[in-house]
Write a protein that binds this DNA or RNA. Structure first.
Lengths: 140, 140
DNA sequence: ATACGACTTCAAGTCAACTTGAGGTCAAGT
DNA sequence: ACTTGACCTCAAGTTGACTTGAAGTCGTAT
């Protein structure tokens, strides 16, 4: 089985060497051996990196992702967690949709200043009033 | 015109005192005077905070938001910027929708391991292959 | 007059996910 | 034998948006 240099991994995955070393440091990936000092990776590392990119784009943190691999390196992406995340994303989509509609409205609204636009005002109320405790959207 | 203590602003806006001081430090809000050492805010600061919360949730940074206020403190939310942001959000919505559908599929897919699900594989390819340069979604 | 508690300042710390920089190593090509 | 350049390590820096902590001030109620 042919092993890959870090440069090759970078080229084929788009993930920078510094990031790869960082991922190794936090335990996300491993290099199987060294050629001199140089890390040698198994080709399947590329798949793993795709997996990581995917999970990241789904809003999982690196720590979350770390938990998705079993001790023997197998993927274990619990289905209920996936569903939960899908629901969060759904929620986020709804928020963003409201936001986008609001923005479109504001952009087209003939009121001289946005503050005078009634929709904008009620939008402000809606955005500003919720959650005097937490502010972050569920899935970034 | 009745002025408000920082505690009152906090209570009515949900924004913590430390955050309010920070916002003042970066020039987003101002306190009009002091009562002893204590900042006193005009009531319209609450509106401004709603505005800030709104813009933040639309994906604008504090620096962006700072640029939306003129020197005399008036709101100036350029319509073309708004449209551009709306389009970015639209794009993000599409990405998230794809993602959500993919997640739902994966959660329901009968393949024993996700890696064996063909849709998941092509999904990985799609997520992992784009942009060997930049990785961040446009509007978080 | 004194205590209380709500505020104040300022510097430093936090978080995630990396990136940067200085200085070093090593295998392969000439 | 030597140069090249791709890699290495390790500590420290970066970013944005705050938060925390220690030590101090002040108005108001008792």
């Amino acid at each position: 089985m042919k092993l890959l240099d870090i440069g090759e991994i970078t080229e084929r995955s788009g993930v920078k060497p510094s990031t790869l070393r960082y991922y190794e440091e936090v335990g996300l990936i491993q290099s199987v051996t060294r050629h001199g000092l140089r890390r040698q990776y198994e080709p399947q590392t590329l798949t793993k990196l795709s997996l990581i990119a995917f999970a990241k784009s789904a809003g999982f943190s690196l720590a979350d992702i770390l938990g998705m691999f079993t001790d023997n390196g197998q993927l274990q992406f619990p289905r209920d967690q996936i569903r939960a995340r899908a629901d969060q994303i759904d929620q986020r989509i709804k928020e963003l949709t409201t936001l986008r509609n609001a923005l479109h409205h504001v952009a087209d609204c003939p009121a001289p200043s946005h503050l005078e636009c009634p929709s904008f005002q009620s939008l402000l109320k809606a955005t500003g009033k919720r959650s005097p405790a937490k502010k972050k959207p569920p899935a970034r």
